[in-house]
Design a protein around this nucleic acid. Structure first.
Lengths: 155, 155
DNA sequence: CACAATTGAATTGCGTACAACTTAAAAAGC
DNA sequence: GCTTTTTAAGTTGTACGCAATTCAATTGTG
């Protein structure tokens, strides 16, 4: 009897079979898990990602930050203005090239790193897995990310 | 010599070691990969997720959709209004409980399923992996999602 | 039955994301 | 050297995503 109640000729589109949804949901879960921890520092999750970049490469340009996080200026400019307004960073035009804006950590931005380390440890702990397991999964997801970005009609 | 150039006492916070960023980035990559395909149907990626739910459970309430997608009414109400304005669904109060709004697919919403199957196949194909591999990774990510959601200070 | 507590959507406000466009500065071409 | 092209940020408009609040309908309790 075809056309019964829930006739699934294609299990391909069942929500629970979708890797894309699993990733979408996990991304939100990470944001939510980090939220109470980042609230204490006073930054949002995307702002925390920007700080991760700056702790590694202080003085990066808006474009460099965007290149690492895959975000464009339309997202970063207002976000950086908020980080600046809250005292975490300073934004200044590069003397040698007035087109680029360099973002530097303030003392406050530098200090926030300590709390970030603690936050990250708390999350890892709550995952109840080993660091190697986390890195293994990270590698798989990064590989997926790469394939998605290098395949489309463009590029 | 401590404090050299890029002194990393804690590789814990290196961007490329962050599972959370890998997931964050992959989620955006999925959205971008689906975009040109969904553009042809005329829906956004989150709207597509709602359609996935409805193709499986037509007539779901706003709350039921949100329960499956982990989205609240603040996100869904305007999204559903747009889906309705574009002719994919209808929204009506439940006769037995005037608080709940039931969402039903229109003929157009039902028909869009065909194109969605094609879109999903195109994405899977671009990943150059087998369906079992995709499902394996999906399982790992879903497990991660679960741990993140059941650990926090709440719950 | 009356009334308090709960529930389901909707609304408001803020912060991403991204497409499309603008503007200013630098690089390239002639 | 002057114009054309390219590049880097910023701006504008639309669509999420979520916290917090509101409002109406239903449920629970005395």
């Amino acid at each position: 009897m075809p056309h019964t109640h829930k006739d699934q000729d294609t299990p391909e589109l069942l929500l629970e079979n979708q890797l894309c949804f699993a990733v979408y949901s996990a991304a939100h879960a990470f944001t939510a898990a980090y939220k109470p921890l980042l609230d204490q520092i006073g930054v949002t999750y995307p702002q925390y990602l920007v700080l991760l970049v700056l702790w590694e490469a202080n003085g990066s340009s808006v474009g460099e930050i965007g290149g690492k996080l895959n975000l464009d200026s339309g997202t970063l400019t207002p976000l950086l203005k908020r980080l600046e307004a809250q005292g975490f960073v300073s934004r200044n035009r590069d003397k040698n090239d007035e087109r680029v804006v360099r973002v530097h950590l303030t003392a406050m931005g530098r200090d926030a790193r300590i709390h970030a380390v603690a936050a990250r440890r708390a999350i890892v702990c709550s995952l109840e897995t080993t660091e190697p397991e986390i890195q293994k999964l990270k590698t798989l997801v990064t590989e997926l990310d790469g394939r998605l970005r290098t395949s489309g009609p463009n590029r």
